[in-house]
């Protein structure tokens, strides 16, 4: 299947992203390209600044040759997808049982105070968004947070300070 993108209010996909989308569609049998939807949404979200607008989702529908509603229902079901604009760095702090036992509540509170935002909020400079997440599979290494693709484990207030400073210096890898 050939990927053709008509540009409305849509992200302009890089050549690398277009090629990757072609590749991952090829991972499924002929006629089953809908199966690539989650992978494509991850790729496109990264290209679109970390969130999926309705226009972006419509673009994914065209790429996969499915209806727009099929994309909306998937994007709204899976909690990883942001349906509203977010900051450049999204901190998703795990707050499920095993992390709570080792102090995730305190880390969340510390980040809230430090960045002067509540969970769900974004700093006014658009740099940071704070969210909570359910179990991220790092229970032995908590408290922890995910930023972009990567995990930051064994968090302490000092480590959070370092991470935030490193983000401000543009030294933290997201993708």
């Amino acid at each position: 299947m050939k990927v053709e993108i008509v540009n409305k209010e849509r992200p302009v996909l890089s050549e690398k992203a277009k090629a990757e989308i072609q590749t991952v569609i090829g991972y499924y049998p002929e006629g089953k390209s809908k199966s690539a939807i989650l992978r494509v949404l991850h790729i496109v979200e990264e290209e679109a600044g970390g969130w999926l607008s309705p226009d972006t989702m419509d673009m994914v529908a065209e790429i996969l040759n499915i209806t727009a509603i099929e994309v909306y229902e998937v994007a709204t079901f899976y909690t990883m997808f942001n349906l509203h604009p977010v900051g450049k760095y999204v901190f998703e702090v795990c707050h499920t049982g095993p992390c709570m036992l080792v102090g995730s509540d305190n880390i969340i509170k510390y980040i809230e105070d430090k960045l002067n935002i509540k969970v769900g909020g974004t700093t006014s400079d658009g740099m940071f968004t704070l969210k909570t997440a359910e179990c991220l599979g790092a229970c032995g290494y908590g408290p922890m947070l995910q930023c972009g693709k990567f995990y930051h484990e064994h968090l302490t207030p000092e480590k959070v300070d370092e991470l935030i400073e490193a983000c401000r210096r543009d030294e933290v890898k997201i993708y």
Binding site: F77, Y78, M80
Partner: peptide, 27 residues
Amino acid sequence: LRVSPGGGAYICGEETALIESLEGKRG
């Protein structure tokens, strides 16, 4: 052999939800 990602849904560890998800649907 190929790898196919989910999108953040515990329920997709249930095998039929996993299959639904791999078909590109809600889990």
